[in-house]
Design a protein around this nucleic acid. Structure first.
Lengths: 146, 146
DNA sequence: CTTGCGCCTTAGAACCATTCTAATTTGTTG
DNA sequence: CAACAAATTAGAATGGTTCTAAGGCGCAAG
């Protein structure tokens, strides 16, 4: 059994778990992500997928990616590429993004935690900054820190 | 001396350090950020600024925000918005974003680190996910992890 | 005080990733 | 084969951000 076949079956299983179908488009998109793990954008996935499935559309690539994310097979990651929110708090802090209210809260960080986090970097990686983002909900109404 | 005046002077100083001028627009934008620390978007800043400076343009708000970020007076934070990247690595990991090459690398995380990081959340914050992003440069050529 | 030069601001167009819409195709079930 | 649901498609629409070209303003030199 080839790896691609194996992946296709695992994919079909996961999709079925969510009541979704396996389709050639979904298989190829997933395969592209597994083949080269360089965190491609949707456009890059589109370009790669077209070599195996020339008729696929960009909209479908977006649809497939979203489907894969919903099935917990793929993670969506956002990097910079356009500052969205601004805060004047210059002390070390993380951000908590409340998915229910859309509000963002600063979370103070003890300096030694940042050190600890940075210490996971292998030799050869020189980090200039670290960003920590929590997502979830604030169960009680918490002070806005304004 | 009012707080606003104090901020304006600190701002002027910081701007001067970078060879830039203090302007009414820059002062008002900075003041808006200090007044309500709810991580506003550029559009929100624009709306607030207009009440004090009705003639200001959105482009200027963007310019001012970028200037403030460059002077280390304000931090830009990205959430959802922005070209999304996708990765099929489901194990706990952080991302290292190499600013020179634009490439992204997975950094494996020991599970206890995620616990430690999550433990900084005060009572009332219930995080569903944590994202850790390093930015910097990879000094040696490191394996791409592909 | 006037002139010149460069920094800032401005409006609106351009850009680009993403989402939406409406129509077609595909697959499944009876 | 018929009917219905799910998925794909092309292209238009959306929306935040950046770019462009033109005008305004302040500072320095004369």
């Amino acid at each position: 059994m080839s790896t691609a076949t194996h992946n296709a079956e695992a994919l079909a299983q996961k999709l079925a778990d969510s009541g979704l179908r396996s389709t050639p488009q979904r298989e190829v998109v997933y395969d592209v992500l597994l083949r080269k793990r360089d965190h491609p954008t949707a456009d890059e996935v589109f370009a790669r997928v077209k070599s195996g499935l020339p008729s696929i559309s960009l909209a479908t690539v977006y649809n497939c990616l979203e489907t894969l994310v919903q099935c917990d097979l793929v993670r969506a990651v956002n990097f910079e590429r356009s500052p969205t929110r601004y805060c004047p708090n210059l002390r070390p802090h993380a951000h908590f993004h409340d998915e229910q209210t859309g509000k963002t809260h600063d979370i103070d960080l003890p300096p030694e935690l940042l050190e600890k986090v940075s210490s996971v970097l292998p030799v050869g990686y020189d980090a200039k900054s670290v960003e920590i983002i929590f997502r979830g909900k604030a169960t009680k109404s918490v002070a806005s820190g304004g």
